[in-house]
Design a protein around this nucleic acid. Sequence first.
DNA 1: CATAATCATAGTAAAATAATAGGAAATAAA
DNA 2: TTTATTTCCTATTATTTTACTATGATTATG
Lengths: 144, 144
Amino acid sequence: MKISTKGRYALRLMLDLAMSPGDEYITIKSIAARQNISDKYLEQIITVLSRAGYVKSTRGAQGGYKLAHPADTYTVGMILRLIEGNLAPVACMEDDPNQCPRCADCVTLDVWKQVGDAINQVVDHITLADLLKKQLIRQEAAKV
Amino acid sequence: MKISTKGRYALRLMLDLAMSPGDEYITIKSIAARQNISDKYLEQIITVLSRAGYVKSTRGAQGGYKLAHPADTYTVGMILRLIEGNLAPVACMEDDPNQCPRCADCVTLDVWKQVGDAINQVVDHITLADLLKKQLIRQEAAKV
DNA sequence: CATAATCATAGTAAAATAATAGGAAATAAA
DNA sequence: TTTATTTCCTATTATTTTACTATGATTATG
């Protein structure tokens, strides 16, 4: 019942991009250094974000990545679902809801549905902008 | 981000015991047959439940297991945490909260805390008795 | 004493996780 | 135009976790 490193890294990666003040492109390398994550691993993750149109990229020198849209248009749920797949706590809730023959009379499934709803409720109501704001406040506090 | 089969089986196992009308001991074999789960695998799971005092057992012929306490004293959360371990969605929330040097200024940790709280809120407010009741109602409905 | 059951421990195949590795293609600066 | 930088693309690999399976000892009943 754990979020994988990919999901966690993806969120930190997106927040790192959001933290960048200007409009310039940020390199994977610099993100990796700040976040202390393997750059090659981050590359895999950002490829998915890029293909989904969550980030823009340019290659070559001075190249890198930046957010494709304003930070308040990304929810944590969007990012996690893209990287982790469905956040449902059991497989029989995904895709075809009838894949398990017990589904109809499975009261434990109700539990998993409630858990899934609770998770989504949280992650779909936190945006990157929320995290950014909180991060900036915390940094200010740390300076004093 | 999935509950493992162990957690899911444990819940079905406990519900199966709760469903048993009398006070007699139920064999692993019969639970396994009803739930369509490997009996040797169930044995591993019930051992944990037994050591934790969640179920009582007797060996030998006519032996088996039964709930140690009334169904309304077990929450889904108790059972899942026993079998799955901590339901926190990231490891850095468990045990020593200071194991990650970023914890202090990690805003993504706040996300995981909220997710964890939401999960616990759900599973700690559903008891075995709730599931039992729902199951019985559903079975009645199916008969008609 | 035979049978039926839990108890205890070990082994194992498959999948998922968490990376690494190597190089091609594109872009900017020298 | 060359060189350095950086994304893009694909493959490989080590480790861990998951989900069982196997074997046999121990205990209780009839």
